[in-house]
Design a binder for these strands. Structure first.
Lengths: 239, 239
DNA sequence: TTAAGTATAATTGTCGACAATTTTTAATTT
DNA sequence: AAATTAAAAATTGTCGACAATTATACTTAA
């Protein structure tokens, strides 16, 4: 599914390439969350030296996909419910502000382009009952465009370069293709409207609500899963 | 002046120690902003191998104090007015949210402790016409307490672990010991009040205004300096 | 049998050297 | 003299080996 972030340039050095592969492996769950990373083992697997691997590990650490302890080693980051909620709260703050800045700083061309994109997505959506597709690609496209539209390097780097790797990881690990597609689509078009009106305050508020709604949706889903598990346990005891 | 961030643990590895020294050198301006970094030279200066130095450079890159281009090298980050404004906008978003979370998550003990701190600062302030001291240590103490009070690891890591290094750098480089001490003090006490009232919405709004006011203060100062320079230029031409 | 201590093995941190790439310098041509 | 090209120097990326630290296995004592 790829869906790489739009800010990064092509990987030139081998450490970069290995970084990308590892990133993919972690996000997709091929490397289990929380598992220990053996430098000699991984280096052998990718047929590179430990120095090069460590360079790649440093980049993984930069986007919070692994955690390192001095003299002990690295672990793939753990996906917890608390972590997910903390992540979404941070995202709400950053992307909310990015959206406000986008309303102030986007060029008319950029706005027009984003409106086109949404129209096109609307077509796709109608075409294929629009759940799966819109959820994945369309959603990310929209959010990336807004973030880049802020024209704020600091925000762009923090959100695209760091936060979104983790978000994608959580999405994969927790299997989050939530059924909010059509509602999300409406929210997106309202946000674009606010940006087109150059109404930064409203744009920020709508984006924050949009992300908060997504967060609450996840909370509910997890709560249900927990209840389901509990139910299964009871069933098991009875039998 | 030190003022190290409160989240980091003692440096155990030599790369860590060199990282701290370099961080200090960059923030204080001993290494000029925008200047090129020579790995062989720096390694020789600190009497370490290039591998170790590169490990330190990776940490510097993590907190955005240097920038690296593959196959070209590293440069100390450049302090521009645009960068400063972008930084403060990001800070407003993150610390605003941290303040909201602090209002929800701080323990009563933590709040009491913060109130004590402010009272003590009030004393210090009265004692010594309270400009210099409060501006530096008191201000940072307050902000760190609020951020940690959010109990949100993601926010804490982003703000304390990354953003604040840059903020300290800008403060040093642009000589920002602005005369907002007494007003800042009042703003701080209102924020604490909102936190004590568990009013997250108000707490966030006050923190955002507090930071925005600081940003505008800097904008004004820089505008004045620009005007002064212009004046000098005219004077020079006349003579 | 469990707990503590010790020896062994494995892992991480650091080092110096070589390879690949870029920058600088010099030479050549227009 | 300026621009283009080629060679040389310097810098970054990568490698394998050793040192320091941590984790494991084993022995010994309570």
């Amino acid at each position: 599914m790829l869906l790489q972030n739009p800010t990064k340039q092509a990987a030139v050095t081998t450490a970069d390439k290995v970084f990308e592969q590892l990133q993919f492996a972690i996000v997709e769950g091929e490397m289990a969350a929380g598992s220990k990373i053996s430098e000699p083992e991984l280096a052998k697997h990718y047929q590179i030296s430990r120095s090069t691997l460590r360079e790649a590990l440093n980049r993984l650490e930069k986007c919070h996909l692994i955690e390192r302890k001095p003299n002990v080693g690295s672990r793939v980051v753990n996906c917890t419910i608390e972590g997910l909620l903390e992540l979404y709260i941070t995202r709400e703050a950053l992307e909310g502000m990015a959206c406000r800045q986008a309303a102030l700083n986007m060029t008319d061309e950029e706005i027009a382009h984003m409106q086109d994109m949404l129209t096109q997505h609307a077509g796709d959506k109608a075409l294929q009952d629009g759940v799966a597709y819109y959820q994945e690609k369309g959603d990310l496209d929209f959010h990336y465009k807004v973030i880049l539209g802020s024209h704020n390097k600091q925000l762009i780097e923090l959100i695209c370069g760091q936060l979104y790797h983790l978000i994608r990881m959580y999405r994969c690990q927790f299997g989050m293709n939530s059924p909010r597609a059509s509602r999300a689509f409406d929210e997106h078009s309202r946000i674009i409207q606010a940006i087109a009106d150059r109404d930064g305050e409203l744009a920020e508020m709508l984006m924050r609500r949009h992300i908060a709604a997504s967060r609450k949706n996840i909370e509910n889903k997890i709560a249900k899963e927990m209840a389901q598990k509990e139910q299964n346990k009871i069933q098991l005891i009875k039998s």
